[in-house]
Simulated assay, not measured.
Amino acid sequence: MENRPIDETAAREFWAEYRSAHPDRATDTEPPSAEVFGDNAELTDELLGLVLDGTKRATASLVVEFELDGQPLPRIGSHWIACDSAGRPRAILRSVELRIGTFASVDEQFAFDEGEDDRSLATWRENHSRYWQRVSAGLGFEWTEDHEIVFERFEVAWAEA
């Protein structure tokens, strides 16, 4: 099942609540993007659940995905809004560590911090390879292990009450 479109109005309101409560932290010059984890409803909600329960504190994205979306790469201290499969904003995430590298450069600690499956490096490689092959095909390019990846660690700065 596909994700529903993101409720951009609700995302802006969610950001405004956070910004009002934490003006010292919400210093982004542009409103943050509203995004979903994964590429289907089941995966989106599963990964968001891991974020909300504290298991998932890292994510990896292809640099080319940011380029195709016309989005700047994240920077330390920047925020983004994580939405569920229904398009509702559920958490505001703040980037605390960023690194760009290739598929071969991921390590066991990062795989563990992503919090998915058994949290092993082997499973991370298997599942992310399969995911990026699927996503890249939908975006019109062929994924290879040489594509640049943004490895991001984040904190939950604000969550739905």
Score class of each variant (00 low, 15 high):
Glu155Gln: 07
His22Asn: 07
Asn40Cys: 15
Arg90Gln: 11
Ser78Trp: 06
Phe14Leu: 11
His22Pro: 02
Ala11Thr: 07
Thr144Phe: 13
Thr59Gln: 06
Asp146Pro: 07
Asp24Val: 00
Ala26Lys: 01
Pro72His: 03
Ala91Glu: 06
Phe66Lys: 01
Leu43Ser: 05
Glu145Leu: 10
Phe110Ala: 03
Ala58His: 05
Ala137Ser: 15
Ser33Val: 09
Gly138Ser: 09
Arg90Trp: 04
Glu160Phe: 13
Asp39Pro: 02
Ser136Cys: 15
Val135Met: 13
Ala91Trp: 12
Ala82Trp: 03
Glu108Gly: 12
Glu2Cys: 05
Phe151Arg: 06
Phe14Asp: 08
Asp107Leu: 09
Ser61Lys: 04
Glu46Arg: 01
Leu43Arg: 06
Pro72Leu: 03
Leu73Arg: 09
Phe103Ile: 10
Ala21Asn: 00
Arg130Pro: 00
Asn127Trp: 11
Asp107Ser: 03
Thr27Ile: 05
Leu48Phe: 13
Ile100Leu: 15
Arg25Asn: 01
Pro31Val: 06
Arg25Leu: 10
Thr27Cys: 00
Ile6Ser: 09
Glu160Asp: 15
Ser61Phe: 08
Ser85Glu: 09
Ser129Lys: 14
Thr55Lys: 08
Thr55Trp: 10
Ala21Phe: 00
Ala21Val: 00
Glu67Gln: 06
Pro31His: 08
Ala26Pro: 04
Val96Pro: 00
Tyr131Pro: 11
Glu155Gly: 12
Phe151Val: 10
Asp69Ile: 02
Ala161Lys: 14
Glu142Asn: 07
Arg75His: 02
Thr123Tyr: 10
Phe14Val: 02
Thr123Arg: 15
Ile100Met: 14
Arg19Gln: 12
Pro74Val: 04
Glu148Ala: 11
Ala161Arg: 15
Glu97Asp: 11
Glu65Asp: 13
Glu160Asn: 10
Glu97Val: 01
Trp15Cys: 01
Phe151Gly: 05
Leu62Arg: 08
Pro23Phe: 01
Glu13Leu: 09
Gln133Ile: 15
Glu142Leu: 12
Val64Tyr: 07
Ser85Ile: 05
Asp7Thr: 10
Arg4Thr: 12
Phe66Val: 01
Glu155Cys: 07
Pro23Leu: 00
Asp117Ile: 13
Ala122Asn: 14
Arg25Tyr: 04
Ala122Arg: 15
Val64Asn: 05
Val64Ile: 09
Ser95Met: 09
Lys56Pro: 13
Val36His: 13
Glu67Phe: 02
Ala157Arg: 07
Gly115Cys: 13
Thr44Gln: 05
Phe37Met: 06
Arg19Met: 03
Leu47Glu: 03
Ile81Met: 07
Ala16Asp: 02
Val96Ala: 07
Met1Thr: 13
